[in-house]
Simulated scan of single mutants.
Amino acid sequence: MVAEELRRRIEAGAIPAGALLPPESALVQEFGISRGTAREAIATLRAEGLVVTEHGRGTYARPQHPVRRLSADRYRPNAVHASDLPETSLRADVRLDEVSATPTLARLFGVAAGTPLLQRRVLFWAHGVPEQLAISNYLLSVVAGTPLTDPTPEPWLSSITTQLSSIGINVTKIRELVRARMPTAEEASALRLLSGVPVLALTRRTYSREQIIEVANEIVLPADRAEIEYEILPT
């Protein structure tokens, strides 16, 4: 009963995002319950991701960030990486490295382990909030000497289709695998995730005819700030 009422108040805005919940003593008095029952109610809301408890501050309604929708349209030519956000609101922290294909990347590319790759590690921001961490890998033999190896024009906010088209590569197919998992400590720090928030992890393979040109392993998004929309046309 207590958790249900507090949930209703949070969802209705009576307890706005960032506002403190009543202390245990107030809940005990208002609902005629024990402190143990009050703690259980708060624990339930915390498990649902509605509240956050910080030592020295108390328990408050969790801030709600705008949800970003990703659709297949983001891979259309000339689309920016987040199709529902204006490009002026975006920025990216980028690091380029030449690496050797690990056994996992070699399997995804269909090449031998140790094959030279160009790796682009990008943390995307929107409206001052980190919203996506992506690690993309390209066959170095394909992109060597092209603008993709030059950090000067970074960040490339256009789609992978447009990026590769700009260097003369025609993308014919993109395959994605999506799964949910808990973040690593590095991901939680980079994306400023609250405790208990899972992520959506996408593995992407980009093809030009039968050759795999790029493998993103992985694209990591906060699960509480992103939703993925697919359109499936039955044949």
Score class of each variant (00 low, 15 high):
Tyr75His: 14
Arg76Met: 08
Pro77Trp: 07
Pro77Thr: 02
Pro77Arg: 02
Asn78Phe: 07
Asn78Trp: 10
Asn78Gly: 09
Ala79Lys: 07
Ser83Asp: 11
Ser83Lys: 13
Asp84Lys: 13
Leu85Glu: 15
Leu85Arg: 12
Pro86Leu: 04
Pro86Ala: 09
Pro86Phe: 03
Glu87Tyr: 01
Glu87Asn: 06
Ser89Ile: 06
Asp93Cys: 10
Arg95Lys: 13
Asp97His: 14
Ser100His: 12
Pro103Ala: 10
Thr104Arg: 15
Thr104Ala: 15
Thr104Phe: 04
Thr104Lys: 15
Leu105Ala: 08
Arg107Trp: 10
Phe109Asp: 03
Phe109Glu: 00
Gly110Phe: 06
Ala112Ile: 13
Gly114Ala: 09
Thr115Tyr: 05
Leu117Ile: 05
Leu118Lys: 03
Leu118Ser: 07
Arg120Phe: 00
Val122Ile: 13
Val122Trp: 04
Phe124Val: 10
Trp125Gly: 03
His127Cys: 14
Gly128Pro: 12
Val129Gly: 09
Val129Asn: 10
Pro130Thr: 10
Pro130His: 11
Pro130Arg: 13
Gln132His: 15
Ile135Pro: 02
Ile135His: 04
Ser136Glu: 14
Ser136Tyr: 02
Asn137Trp: 05
Asn137Leu: 05
Tyr138Trp: 07
Tyr138Phe: 11
Tyr138His: 02
Leu140Val: 01
Leu140Glu: 06
Ser141Ile: 01
Val142Leu: 02
Val143Gly: 05
Val143Ser: 03
Val143Tyr: 00
Val143Lys: 01
Val143Trp: 04
Gly145Ser: 05
Thr146Met: 00
Pro147Glu: 09
Leu148Asp: 06
Thr149Phe: 01
Thr152Asp: 08
Pro153Met: 12
Pro153Tyr: 05
Pro153Phe: 12
Glu154Phe: 12
Glu154Arg: 12
Glu154Cys: 15
Pro155Thr: 01
Pro155Ala: 08
Trp156Met: 14
Leu157Thr: 04
Leu157Phe: 07
Ser158Asn: 08
Ile160Trp: 03
Thr161Trp: 06
Thr161Leu: 07
Thr161His: 04
Gln163Ile: 09
Leu164Phe: 01
Ser165Cys: 05
Ser165Asp: 12
Ser166Asn: 08
Ile167Arg: 06
Gly168Asn: 02
Ile169Trp: 00
Asn170Lys: 05
Val171Gln: 01
Thr172Asp: 01
Arg175Cys: 14
Glu176Asn: 06
Leu177Ile: 15
Val178Ala: 14
Val178Trp: 12
Arg179Leu: 13
Arg179Ile: 11
Arg181Gly: 09
Arg181Thr: 06
Arg181Val: 03
Met182Glu: 14
Pro183Lys: 02
Thr184Asn: 09
Ala185Met: 10
Ala185Pro: 06
Glu186Phe: 15
Glu186Ile: 11
